[in-house]
Amino acid sequence: MAERPPTRAPVQPGAVAGRIFLYGILVLAALYFLLPFFVMVTTSLKSMAEIRTGNLVSLPREITFEAWREAWGSACVGVQCEGIKGYFYNSIRMAIPAVLISTAIGAVNGYIFSKWRFRGSEVIFSLLLVGCFIPFQVILLPMARTLGTFGLAQSLTGLVLVHIIYGLALTTLFFRNFYVGIPDDLVKAARIDGAGFFRIFFRIILPISAPIIVVTIIFQMTQIWNDFLFGVVFTGGDTQPVTVALNNLVNTSTGVKQYNVDMAAAIITGAPTLLVYILAGKYFLRGLTAGAVKG
């Protein structure tokens, strides 16, 4: 989204008040969006005693990292009291292979659907596209049975497979739409020179794919890291991803509720995707709109 060249809204002397009003609303909106994050951070740095006496937006009088230590290493998630660190590692071990494999397959698929079309390939692509939209509830029961049959029930490997399978439709779509914009002549010329399917892919297509690879990896990473449904259905106990662990932590009804620990755990859970967003927001947005306006 490029900045618009200054053509609209001519500035007149009388419009200064309007401009102030405009900026006022925009800043107010920004504060509104920031508020939950601000509350999370300040609450996580307070002690429970201070939370009980203070209020939502008060700054911590005494900053303590006790809640963070507890959230990471000793808070009770279900029956185990070892914090969310194990589940955080689970998410990393799940996300890396799932993101890389679904992106790699999507790249090759997209290459075929754009540059090696065959009779029926458009129909197959449309049928695959439906996979982006189905509510996953409609495949959960058969998938649970199937994973059980192959001995993958409640395992991280099973979860990785599920993420790859149901991520493929979208990664294929991303790459296909990107490659459609690359002139066919490039591929045709290479074919006349005798280059084959894989040679063209690795020598010509892949080297110019960097932007879409980044967009896809970021999009998939965010999707897979933030997933809750697949995690809660297909894993259990100590194979759960961090989102499921966070939900269990927050919804534990036993013992005294420690809001500061909840908030610290929530920030830790959100940190990887938030970091990606801050570092590569442009690519994140591109993936979001590409994934939204599908087809």
Partner: peptide
């Protein structure tokens, strides 16, 4: 960037924050 950052977060994370608020 500020308006859009919630989209990068899991609903579980933001839900935890709202539950507290």
């Amino acid at each position: 960037t500020l308006y859009l950052y919630p989209m990068a977060l899991s609903f579980i994370v933001t839900g935890t924050a709202w539950r507290w608020i």
